[in-house]
Design a protein around this nucleic acid. Sequence first.
DNA 1: CAACTTGTAACCCATAACGTAACAGGTTAC
DNA 2: GTAACCTGTTACGTTATGGGTTACAAGTTG
Lengths: 95, 95
Amino acid sequence: MKMHNPPHPGEILRELCIEPLGLSITEAAEALGVTRKTLSAILNGRSGISPEMAVRLSLAFGTSAESWLNQQSQYDLWEAEKKRKQLKVRKLSAA
Amino acid sequence: MKMHNPPHPGEILRELCIEPLGLSITEAAEALGVTRKTLSAILNGRSGISPEMAVRLSLAFGTSAESWLNQQSQYDLWEAEKKRKQLKVRKLSAA
DNA sequence: CAACTTGTAACCCATAACGTAACAGGTTAC
DNA sequence: GTAACCTGTTACGTTATGGGTTACAAGTTG
């Protein structure tokens, strides 16, 4: 049911990619081809992982872009679900 | 390998939800709690499915919000992958 | 102490989702 | 047949967010 608050993907990026390799934000940002600010914002949860960034991560770390983007989706969805009860939506099908 | 050009999620929304129920854009938009314009833009591929919209679709059609958002991610990723070769990214790990 | 590096914040711009209002086309009513 | 209405779409403004440039606080090293 995956019902626990998911961490923002930047946290995972830091713990699984940046720290294990002993990289500084500056080094990683240069390799990714973005500014230090951009990477810093992601790592601190003030930006999400955009589709282009997912491809960059895929290139730099050899991971799948899809997994990064899916993690971001799960996080965004978790935030959106908080407002589910406030949305006035009428049911359309019995499915 | 899912290597074919994915349709935009609005197309799927139209074919799997709107048309089978014989709904007009106006009717469906009202039920979803958005304007006709907003739904029209999605159905014609000029807007993506936002996290909030995914929750709305989930409420109205009894589907999973996650599946809508994942479809959108797959579509966005397909677009982003087109520029993969143009991104100047340095490889950081041998993984 | 001075020069440099590191991470973050302030500011600006581009893009995109959403709403309001206006539009073109087709029905329907009179 | 023309006037009222409904449908889907477009034009425009607002708001939110990713990203770059620049400036700043904190450390580090000559």
